[in-house]
Computed example of a mutant assay.
Amino acid sequence: MSGTIARAWAVRRCDGLVLGFTDHDRALSFEGIAFRPDSGLSARAVVQGLGLSVDNSEAVGALSDAAITERDLMAGRWDAADVRLWEVDWSDAANRRLIFRGHLGEVVRSGAAFRAELRGLSEPLNRAQGRVYHPRCAAVLGDGLCRFDLTRAGYSAEGVVVLEEGDRLELSGVAGHDAGWFEHGQLVVLSGAAEGLSGMVKADAALPGGRREVGLWTALGIRPAPGDRVRLLAGCDKRAETCRMKFLNYLNFRGFPHLPPEDWLIAPKVNR
């Protein structure tokens, strides 16, 4: 088999789309997946360790209209996609072995190509497990722990892009909200080339005439154009006061606001 070895990749996105790639010069097929040789996807050496160490590798490839497009990449549709890598005998695909399974991590675009980090099955062991005891809320606004309904009137608004300058956008048609109402919230693009992209709101200022200036923490991968519609979702800074006064949702607050601060442990004790 050593003289007929090729590599084959199967990548399953979170939306269910499955694509197959191979570094062989002809198409391969097994497990109901067609592995194409013309995708431009290849892999660097897979580093595998014993025990609980994290396997890692990189996938590099070219952007194309037929397989991995710039729009899908920038929209995050490839984030956390499931990845399997085989060594396969191209003369007999039944003779193969699975050498890597994991998911895509950070994806970096460079010109007409991309580079994606691969993370093995043991990678989740690096994450914090269990509940964190902290004065601020540990839930995500609107999730199953928070239980707040973001479709309630007043907690979202739609507008039209008037001006776009990287991580700063000026919108029209957004009125009736206090300045800062959408800080720590989300901006979602509803139309245009950037449709489906979203970003976290860093700053939110109300301007005269129903206009609004929104600053994002990071510019979107595909920039919205003037005339594109966007939706703003109210932001939460995770404080107990915000949960109680802004969202009227203190019953579901997932923090510990009365937890003593860290300096309490080293504060001098007063004898009484």
Score class of each variant (00 low, 15 high):
T4M: 08
A6C: 11
A6W: 00
R7C: 09
A8H: 00
A8R: 00
G16S: 11
G20H: 05
A27H: 05
A27C: 09
G32V: 06
I33V: 15
I33K: 01
R36D: 09
S42C: 11
G49T: 15
L50Y: 08
G51Q: 05
D55K: 14
D55R: 14
N56F: 06
E58V: 11
A59L: 15
A59R: 06
G61C: 07
T69Y: 01
D72T: 04
D72I: 01
L73A: 15
W78L: 15
D79V: 06
A80D: 14
D82K: 03
V83Y: 08
V83K: 07
D92S: 06
I99F: 05
R101W: 00
G102D: 02
H103F: 14
G105Q: 07
E106R: 12
V108Y: 01
A112N: 11
F114V: 00
P124C: 03
G130H: 00
R131V: 07
V132Y: 06
H134C: 08
R136A: 11
C137A: 09
C137K: 01
G144K: 07
G144I: 05
E158V: 12
V162W: 06
S172F: 04
S172E: 14
G173T: 09
G180Y: 01
G180Q: 04
V188W: 13
V189Y: 12
G192I: 07
G196Q: 10
G196Y: 10
L197T: 13
G199E: 12
D204R: 05
A205F: 07
G209E: 11
G215D: 08
G221W: 04
P226T: 04
G227P: 04
D228K: 02
V230S: 07
A234L: 02
R239M: 01
A240M: 01
A240F: 12
R244F: 01
K246G: 00
N249C: 01
Y250K: 02
L251Q: 14
G255N: 03
P260F: 07
D263G: 07
L265S: 10
P268N: 08
K269P: 10
N271P: 11
R272S: 13
R272D: 12
R272W: 11
